[in-house]
Design a protein around this nucleic acid. Structure first.
Length: 433
DNA sequence: GTAGGGTTAG
């Protein structure tokens, strides 16, 4: 091995790590990375950055991966080769995408760290931060980053504007969002389909469907091609408003424009038809979906479970849940809770409790909703003592009652003169959302 | 690096 640690072995480990990453074997890649450190092999950012990117992506599913990613960057520094701007962007992005409180604090600290390491943030670094702050509903912090970006001589681009527009839209500041779209034009930046999707989503979520639909027509007039997301946003809004004819006409319009519906599109339509009690239409869509070779997913099943339970056909719903297991679709909390609620509505508490046992057996821990459903079910049958027992059970398990728990307890127990035999914090839980 | 949604309790 030469004195700088660079040798054929290093290159081989580099390639090995890359190969692991390409085959989605992040854990093995990480192990190889650590081993290489033991032997003092010098790796390159060529393999480290892709590995980091995978760790960050996987941090969505498993805790600790983001920590690992941070360790990789520390290791890289200790081993004497510098992380690049890509390394930092990847890591900052990981923190920004996390839904945790204080994530932006950490992201901001990383920005300062990279500057202290003499690594220049680029447009992408700033865009990641701006988007993170906007998602945190902290538009003023985003503005500060925006100013800093310009102070560094970097020009905001379309991604920067889209993040701001989306942030404003989700806060319902629709006029300001439209104003920003017009401001972009002044800088020579043309709004794209992402800009329009953010705007259409903003208006749709405020139930301003005429305006939302107008924006779609506007986008087409500008020569932009609406995509599957554009249509899904609008179709979902029409379905939720119970305007199924218009939802279907949009579905036809997307086919005309050669935009392929996906599972989400169908889930919106199926849910919409079930909600208005039109089982035939919903089932027709279900067949159409299968015809096109699209596989129904967890959401499709949850929607169907809910429809059956609301119709008072919980037995059928239970069979549907079995079908999920056969199809290797792992039922979520929602799946089990929905079925439990169905049984509770039918007054079949024994079956509801069996579902709880089943969910625990399948590795899903009962959550607050599980307990809310059961407590309500027992209350409705006049079994206040048992309901109270469930309340204590959930507290013992460390589950924090929310506003809905409180409402149920107040309406179903306290107004009937029953005093819950639990410690005081349930009474103050109305602050929980 | 930006756009949807992940449909259970009230």
């Amino acid at each position: 091995m030469s004195s700088d640690g660079f040798c054929a072995n290093s290159i081989i480990v580099d390639m090995l790590i890359l190969a692991y990453v390409k085959n989605f074997k992040t854990d093995q890649a990480f192990e190889a990375f650590e081993r290489a450190g033991d032997y003092d092999f010098k790796l390159s950012v060529l393999s480290c950055n892709p590995m980091l990117s995978c760790l960050v992506k996987e941090s969505k599913f498993g805790a600790g991966k983001l920590q690992k990613a941070g360790d990789v960057v520390e290791d890289m520094k200790v081993r004497g080769f510098s992380p690049t701007v890509v390394t930092y962007n990847t890591l900052i992005n990981g923190y920004c995408k996390k839904g945790r409180v204080g994530k932006m604090y950490k992201a901001d600290a990383l920005l300062k760290e990279m500057v202290s390491q003499k690594i220049c943030p680029n447009e992408i670094t700033y865009n990641i931060l701006i988007d993170g702050f906007c998602k945190d509903e902290n538009v003023s912090a985003a503005m500060k980053v925006f100013k800093e970006m310009q102070g560094q001589g970097l020009k905001p681009n379309i991604v920067t504007y889209n993040s701001f527009i989306n942030g404003l839209c989700s806060k319902g500041k629709l006029d300001e969002a439209l104003g920003l779209r017009d401001e972009m034009l002044g800088w020579g930046l043309m709004p794209n389909v992402v800009t329009y999707n953010a705007l259409i989503n903003g208006f749709s979520k405020r139930k301003m469907l005429t305006e939302a639909r107008g924006l779609l027509d506007d986008a087409v007039k500008q020569g932009l091609a609406p995509n599957v997301i554009t249509f899904n946003i609008l179709i979902d809004a029409y379905c939720k408003a119970g305007r199924m004819e218009e939802a279907i006409s949009l579905h036809d319009f997307m086919l005309d424009r050669m935009v392929c519906p996906n599972v989400s599109t169908y889930n919106c339509l199926i849910g919409g038809f079930y909600r208005e009690g039109n089982m035939e239409a919903a089932n027709k869509i279900l067949y159409e979906m299968e015809d096109k070779g699209l596989r129904t997913d967890l959401v499709t099943y949850n929607i169907r479970l809910d429809a059956l339970c609301k119709k008072g056909e919980s037995r059928k719903a239970a069979r549907l849940l079995d079908e999920m297991l056969e199809m290797s679709i792992r039922p979520s909390h929602v799946s089990y809770n929905t079925l439990m609620d169905g049984y509770c509505r039918e007054g079949n508490l024994r079956a509801a409790l069996n579902v709880r046992a089943q969910m625990e057996k399948e590795g899903r821990r009962p959550n607050v909703v599980t307990y809310n459903v059961l407590i309500k079910g027992f209350c409705n049958k006049g079994k206040l003592e048992e309901a109270n027992g469930l309340l204590n059970d959930m507290l013992e398990k460390g589950l924090i009652p929310n506003r809905i728990t409180y409402d149920i307890v107040r309406e179903e127990m306290m107004e009937k003169g029953f005093v819950p035999d639990i410690d005081g914090h349930i009474y103050n839980s109305s602050v929980n959302s």
